[in-house]
Every structure is written in C-alpha cells, then in structure tokens.
Design a binder for these strands. Structure first.
Length: 449
RNA sequence: GUGGCCGUAGCUCAGUUGGUUAGAGCGCCGCGUUGUGGUCGCGGAGGUCGCGGGUUCGAAUCCCGUCGGUCACCCCA
C-alpha cells in the first residue's frame, strides 16, 4: 500500500474535461427543464440499496457493485450501488407512500453503476435521467400514451440528429405466444430483440436452434417482429397473422391508444415496432425505445415502459410507467466524437486585466460590478504585460478582456477577442451580446443544435 | 466471465532484418514584440518505450508472464 498506485484511466468510468462537463451540464439542464414543464417533481434517492432488494428485482446480480467497509474484513456486503433508477423508485414510493401524492410523477437524474464490460456507448458509471409516473392501485393508460410525446420532445431538445421513438407492448408478444400455445416467451423475446443486429436469418437460426421452435412458428414470430408502422396499420397486420388470444387483443388495444395519442406529432416521429421488448424483465405492458438517425449502432438512448408489478404498498399494487435517458451514452458518442463541444472552456465571460500591483483593488471592483449584473468575470492574477493576459483569455475561450482606465483622464475599455475591436465601457452598464453571456453548445456534423 | 487487437512525449503517431544519443506534428514555455493576443521566425522543456522476467555482445524491436486499454460475445442507457 505504500507504493504509489499508477495513475491510469479506469475503463468504463468516464471523466470529462471542463469544456465537456459544460456540455453535459447543459444537457442535464435541458432534461430537467422539460421534465418540470410536464409537471414532474424532482427526486434524488440514495446511491445504495439493500443488496437483497436489488437482486430480487431482476437484473443479473453479477452487474451489481457491492459496497462494504474496508474495516469489516470478511464481512458479506449487504448494500449494492443501484444499477438503474427504477428499482430505487419502487422502494422509495413504498417507503414514502403515505406522504406522496398519486399519480406520483417524478424526474430523477443520477449516476448509476453496472459492473459490465465497458464498450463503445457502455459504461460502468453513467448518468441516467428518468421520468416516471407511479399510481396508487392503478395507473391510467393516459400516462403510457403521454410518454412518446415527452420522449420526442426530449430528444428534439438535445443536440443530436433526429430521433425516432419506437413503441410496442409486452402483452402483444406474450399474448401472441399464448395464442401459439407458448407460456414462456423470454427466449423468443431475446432472439427477436437481435433482429436489427443479426437480421431475420440470424433470428430464425436462434429460434429454431436455441429456443427450439418449429420452422412454422419461427416464421410467424418473424412476421410479427417485422411489423412496423407509423400509424394504426399494425393492428390489421397482426390480425392477419391469424393468432388470437385475449392478452394479445388487450395488448393491441393498449398499443393503439398509445400510438393514436401521438398522431399530432410529425409522421414517423413515433412508430409502432413489434420487435422491441426491452431486456429488463419487469416490463408488463407498453415498452419504448428510440433510435438516432445515423447512429443505430449506438442502441437506444431513451427507453422505458410500463411495469405493473414492481412495487406494492399496503395491499395495493403501485404500477408505473416511465422512461430513462442515457445521458452518458449520448455524450460518449457525440462529445467523444467531437460533434459536440462548448463554445468556451470556462463560464468566464470577461477577464479583467491587472495593470499593476496597486491596481488589484480597482480590477476587483470592476469584476464585482460585472458579476452583480450576472456577467461572469475574473481578475487576472499577475500584472503581466497585456499581451500575455490577452493570450491567457484567448486560450480559454474567454470572449472579452476588460482594461481598467490608466489614469484620471482615461476610461475603462473592453476588447472583443474575436473581432479585436476595443471600445470604451462602463462596468455598471456594459452588457455582452446574449450569445456570449454563457457558454453555448456548438455542434458539428449531423448533430443539430 | 470468454476471445481478438493494441500499449513509444500532455495528445496523435513514426521508429527498417535487434545496433550506438528514441524522432515528428500538434500542444506547452521563452525570446523577437518590457502595456494589446492570434500570424511568422528562433530557441527550450518534456520519455522508467505499461510493468516484470528471459534470449542476446546489444532489446522500443524477439519470447514468456502480468497489468491496462479497446473491440466482439452476453446484456443493456
């Protein structure tokens, strides 16, 4: 332990530079703003949950990071870091049920941890932004129906290319299975979920091989999985497959409600896509996914669904429906790829030059006056020649340098570093252009601003 | 957890069949220009070649191990 540990990056635990963190914070702010516009209340839960609770609520236990005290040698960990925000929500809602109002709409933006092998777009520590609605006893399908519009707006508010929201319903898959005399559809779902990646032939191989369906059954599953429609045509398409079952009918009805509710959005923004299922096993109805134009390899960066059985309190179920935005996944792609960056690497808008040692008070007063009016300002720390002070500002992307008056017959002046123009200015009145007040997100390539 | 590829300066990389003092570009610092940046010119700092062992007169280069990174599988934001 006395040897100093080597400093290396830790795979899967991304750390950004300040100019990148600026972008990340702005994305988080946009999500927060939109969530509040829809009436979701803010929530944060503790980072750890009882291990038993985490493992019990599905999800491969191997992914969970356990937490223990170094001093408790040999002790078995009984706490784990949460791997999503839905399971903590379920626990929280049960615990605080008596003090919450239902339907409980909350948003929650926090880090989560998964012990999986990191890869492009997959991390071990990452941000999720969740929006969920939990009902007491029951939860109106209204909330399922509202989600695609929220997702659409959320994705449109983020500086990424056009996104498509994909919707389906687990009852359709499960009911279809029942109609075919199959109770357990997990293997089927796992295979269908790979349709995009391995294609119809690959899926057929899985179905007939590992899952053990007949050729005929595989054909029907594939026919179902390939149904994709921006309107209600999917109902006829499913019916045409000749499978009937009550659950299937209910699923189609629910999906119809959800898709119909999105009719006012641009055509194609929300698409019924019957192959999506979501891996997490707590989904029971509506399921959501999303794809970004030109980045289908990235996977879904916003997904979720309906879970009727995740929690219960005092004898009633506490059903919920919600979505989760993979903020880190999005950033990893667009920030790492250089398509997104902040207009400057610091919040500072004005660097106030320091003339000489005796001028510290004057420069500090100028900065204070600017800050009073909401303009981020800092004083250069050393009375170096102005060329160096300007260069310091330039390298950090600070757009303005303020030069205090040199004598009684002189006035302050402010220099715009991009144009090189310098004008007389009063620290109680001067304002930068709106665009320069705060750092902005700049995007290149396919990412829209 | 299993398998493929890769570890040389802060970053991106070059380094011949093993050979003498390991290079380039960018970035950084200084000077030209001592109170007005960006361009240009000149100069400078910066390296346990991931780590450990082996082969050899000699290893960044070959071999073994190990650690780390990365991609794929699994699964998912």
């Amino acid at each position: 332990m006395s040897q100093r540990a080597q400093i290396t990056p830790l795979s899967g635990f991304p750390e950004w530079l300040p100019e990148q963190r600026i972008v990340e914070q702005m994305l988080l702010d946009r999500i927060r703003r939109l969530a509040e516009l829809y009436g979701f209340v803010p929530l944060e839960t503790r980072a750890v949950e009882p291990l038993e609770h985490l493992v019990h609520q599905g999800e491969t236990s191997k992914e969970i990071y356990t937490v223990g005290r170094l001093q408790d040698e040999g002790a078995t960990a009984d706490l784990g870091l949460h791997f999503d925000l839905t399971v903590p929500l379920a626990r929280y809602v049960q615990e605080f049920r008596g003090r919450l109002r239902f339907p409980f709409k909350r948003y929650q933006i926090q880090k989560v941890w998964r012990g999986e092998r990191p890869q492009d777009g997959r991390y071990r520590e990452f941000y999720q932004a969740d929006l969920d609605v939990v009902g007491d006893g029951e939860l109106s399908l209204h909330f399922d129906a509202e989600m695609p519009a929220i997702m659409h707006e959320l994705l449109a508010a983020l500086p990424v290319p056009t996104a498509t929201v994909l919707v389906s319903n687990r009852k359709v898959l499960d009911g279809f299975g029942r109609g075919l005399g199959r109770d357990d559809t997990t293997g089927i779902i796992r295979a269908l979920d790979k349709l995009d990646k391995i294609g119809a032939d690959g899926v057929r191989e899985l179905l007939c091989g590992e899952v053990g369906t007949t050729d005929g059954e595989a054909d029907r599953w594939l026919a179902l999985a390939e149904i994709r429609s921006p309107d209600l045509d999917f109902v006829d398409a499913v019916t045409a497959l000749g499978v009937s079952d009550d659950l299937l009918t209910r699923g189609l009805d629910e999906l119809t409600t959800v898709v119909a509710a999105s009719a006012s959005l641009p055509r194609g923004a929300v698409v019924a896509d019957l192959h999506i299922a979501r891996g997490l096993d707590y989904y029971t109805g509506t399921v959501f996914e999303s794809t970004i134009a030109g980045h289908s390899d990235l996977g879904s960066i916003c997904s979720g669904g309906r879970y009727d059985d995740l929690a219960s309190g005092g004898g009633h179920p506490l059903p919920g429906v919600g979505i989760s935005v993979g903020v880190s996944r999005l950033l990893g792609r667009f920030l790492g790829g250089g398509q997104l960056r902040a207009s400057r690497a610091t919040p500072t808008c004005v660097l106030v030059a320091l003339v000489d040692e005796g001028g510290r008070g004057r420069s500090a007063a100028i900065a204070r006056r600017l800050r009073t009016r909401g303009i981020a300002a800092e004083v250069f720390h050393e009375p170096l020649r102005f060329g160096k002070q300007i260069r310091h500002a330039d390298r950090r992307g600070i757009p303005f340098v303020w030069f205090p008056a040199r004598g009684d017959d002189d006035t302050d002046s402010v220099r715009d570093l991009r144009s090189g123009t310098q004008v007389p200015a009063d620290a109680d009145a001067w304002m930068p252009p709106d665009a320069d007040l705060h750092p902005a997100i700049e995007s290149t390539a396919a990412a829209a601003p």
